[in-house]
Lab assay of single mutants.
Amino acid sequence: EDEVKKIVKRLIENGVDDEQIKEIVKRQGVDERIVDKVLKELK
C-alpha cells in the first residue's frame, strides 16, 4: 500500500487526473479500493 501511495503521489504531482491514475495503478494489478483509499488520503 505504501508503494501505491508513492506512485499515486508522483502521478498527482505530474498533473495526472484521478481517472488516469486509477487506470495506471489498476494495470499494475492493484485493487481499485486501495487506489480509491489512497486518492482520498492524498487529497
Rank of each mutant, 00 (worst) to 15 (best):
K22M: 12
E1H: 12
E41T: 06
N14T: 11
E13M: 13
L42M: 08
V35I: 15
K43P: 04
L11T: 00
K5W: 12
R33N: 11
I34E: 04
V16E: 05
I34Y: 06
E3S: 09
V4L: 12
I34W: 07
K22Q: 04
K6A: 14
D18M: 14
D36H: 06
Q20W: 07
Q20N: 10
D17R: 10
I21G: 00
K43S: 08
E1P: 07
V8G: 00
K26F: 06
V35M: 04
L42C: 02
E19W: 12
E13P: 01
R27Q: 12
K5S: 06
E1Q: 08
I12T: 04
V8N: 00
V16W: 15
R10D: 13
G29F: 04
I24R: 05
E32H: 08
D2F: 08
Q28C: 14
E23I: 13
K9Q: 14
N14L: 15
L42E: 03
R27C: 05
R27T: 07
K37F: 06
G15M: 05
V30I: 15
D31F: 05
I7S: 04
K40G: 09
V8I: 15
K5M: 10
E32Y: 07
K9C: 08
Q20A: 13
V38L: 12
D2I: 09
E41R: 05
L42T: 04
R33W: 15
R27S: 13
K37R: 13
G15T: 02
I24W: 09
I12N: 02
K5F: 09
K40P: 03
E19A: 13
R33A: 14
K9P: 00
V8F: 02
D36R: 07
V16S: 06
L11A: 02
E41A: 10
E13L: 13
L42W: 04
K26D: 02
D36I: 14
E13F: 10
Q20Y: 07
V4A: 05
V35A: 06
K22L: 11
K22P: 02
N14I: 14
D17K: 11
K40I: 09
I7M: 14
E32D: 08
V4D: 00
I24E: 04
V38M: 08
V35T: 05
R33T: 11
I7Y: 10
E41N: 06
R33D: 12
I12F: 10
V25L: 15
I21S: 00
V4P: 01
K9E: 09
L11E: 01
D18L: 14
E1C: 06
G15W: 03
D2P: 07
K40N: 12
V38W: 11
G29M: 03
E41I: 08
E3Y: 14
I7T: 08
Q28M: 15
K22W: 07
I34M: 12
E23L: 13
K37V: 05
D2R: 07
L42D: 01
E23K: 11
K22T: 04
I12H: 08
L42R: 02
R27G: 11
R10P: 03
N14S: 14
D2L: 10
G29K: 03
V30Y: 15
G15L: 04
D2Q: 10
Q28N: 09
G29L: 03
K26P: 01
L39P: 00
V38Q: 02
Q20V: 11
D17V: 08
G29H: 04
V16T: 07
Q20D: 10
K6L: 13
K37T: 05
V38R: 01
K40M: 13
Q28I: 15
K26N: 05
E1L: 14
K26V: 14
E23P: 01
